[in-house]
Amino acid sequence: MTDLATLTTEALNPRTADIDRLDTADILLRLNDEDATVAAQVRLAIPEIARAVDLALERWRAGGRIILFGAGTSGRLAALDAAELIPTFGAPPDRYAARIAGGENAFRRPIEGAEDDVADGANVPDDLTPSDVAIGIAASGRTPWVIAALRRAGERGAARIGIACVAQPALAAECDVTIAVETGAEAISGSTRLKAGTAQKMILNAFSTALMVRLGKVYGNLMVDVLATNEKLRARAVRLTCLATGVDDERARAVLATADWSVKTAIVAIHFGTDIETARARLEAVDGMTRLALEPQATEALGAQASVPRPSAPIAENPCQDNVD
């Protein structure tokens, strides 16, 4: 196993050697200066992130799952990413999920020794299949639990992606795609919840968002598969529908109510002036891709004839004129 002392994430940072002598504002400025270096390092890894997205897209379309594995901060960030995809993109929680060393309780408090439990790491992926993707996340690239999970996932035939914050991480030997972002010495020596954690969050954000875009859960830059499960999200669904179609709030809310608050269904129904079931059929014919459902190919896919309803009004040329929080 890689010697911890040789990892760049464990090195002393000369830029923050006097951080304990600074006042509060200057401490924060030093931390922010270090954080500012992360985005450029993540950008260097975009080719590998793209390979990871395309690999996951292929498996997802074949009915597979994406399962993230991590310990400590890495596991908590994985769990956060998986949880956020449910309301944001309507991702099924059984198809994009996270598993953390030590189990669910480790999300709230550290469980000592869990990251070293090779036997548990090897057992956790036992339900994976060749259609699935395992993503192992470890800032050091050497966490035994994560490496054991990746190795077992490979034995089960799953595709494997690794995320680490050092060059040439040990976990790369168990991966089909490795995303290695060298974040360097932390502001507080060895505290990888800082820059390394920021990099991991950025990578996971980029990976999961790009995957959801490729799956058609975005139209323009509108998240049209949002699950409107509370009043704030219902208000967002109304706004998204208005932005995409140009109708007023009252019309958008009325159509959404009959569409079980499905934004993409409402958009298609309003665009063609048709009923909800026809709108759903158009979406199903093109695998839920809103943009394709608004084009003639969707009609052809339905085997429809000239009697198919024509759009009652043109769809907004740019459905993303405003930002949505």
Rank of each mutant, 00 (worst) to 15 (best):
D3L: 14
A5Y: 03
T8S: 12
E10L: 00
A11N: 09
N13A: 10
R15P: 08
A17M: 12
D23P: 02
I27E: 00
L29R: 06
N32A: 14
T37K: 06
T37N: 06
A40R: 04
A40N: 02
A40D: 09
L44F: 05
I46Q: 09
A50N: 11
L57N: 06
A62E: 11
I67C: 03
G70C: 06
A71I: 02
G75M: 04
A79F: 00
A79V: 05
A82L: 05
I86F: 04
T88Y: 06
R95G: 09
N105L: 11
N105D: 13
A106D: 10
F107W: 03
R108K: 01
E112V: 07
E112M: 06
G113A: 06
A114V: 13
A114N: 03
A114Q: 03
E115S: 03
G121N: 03
N123S: 03
L128K: 02
L128A: 04
S131K: 05
A134H: 01
I135E: 08
I137K: 01
A138D: 09
A139Q: 12
G141K: 05
G141Q: 04
T143W: 00
T143D: 00
R151N: 14
G154V: 00
E155C: 09
R156C: 14
G157H: 06
A158I: 09
I161D: 12
G162R: 11
A164V: 10
C165K: 04
P169D: 11
A172P: 15
A173R: 10
T178S: 15
E182W: 01
A185R: 03
E186C: 07
I188E: 06
L194E: 07
T198M: 07
A199E: 04
M202I: 15
L204W: 00
L204G: 00
F207W: 07
R214C: 11
K217I: 12
Y219Q: 09
D225P: 14
V226Q: 09
V226E: 07
E231S: 14
A235T: 13
R236D: 14
R236P: 10
V238C: 07
T241W: 10
C242N: 02
C242E: 14
V247Y: 02
V247N: 02
E250S: 12
R251D: 05
V255F: 03
L256T: 01
D260M: 07
W261S: 07
S262E: 14
K264C: 13
K264T: 14
I267K: 10
I270S: 08
F272Q: 03
F272L: 12
G273R: 05
G273S: 06
I276L: 11
T278L: 15
A279S: 15
A279R: 13
A281C: 01
R282T: 12
L283D: 05
E284Q: 11
A285E: 11
A285T: 13
G288V: 10
M289R: 15
R291S: 15
Q297I: 15
Q297M: 14
A298W: 02
T299I: 15
E300M: 13
A301P: 08
G303V: 01
Q305T: 15
S307R: 11
P309V: 09
R310G: 13
I315Q: 03
A316E: 15
D325I: 13
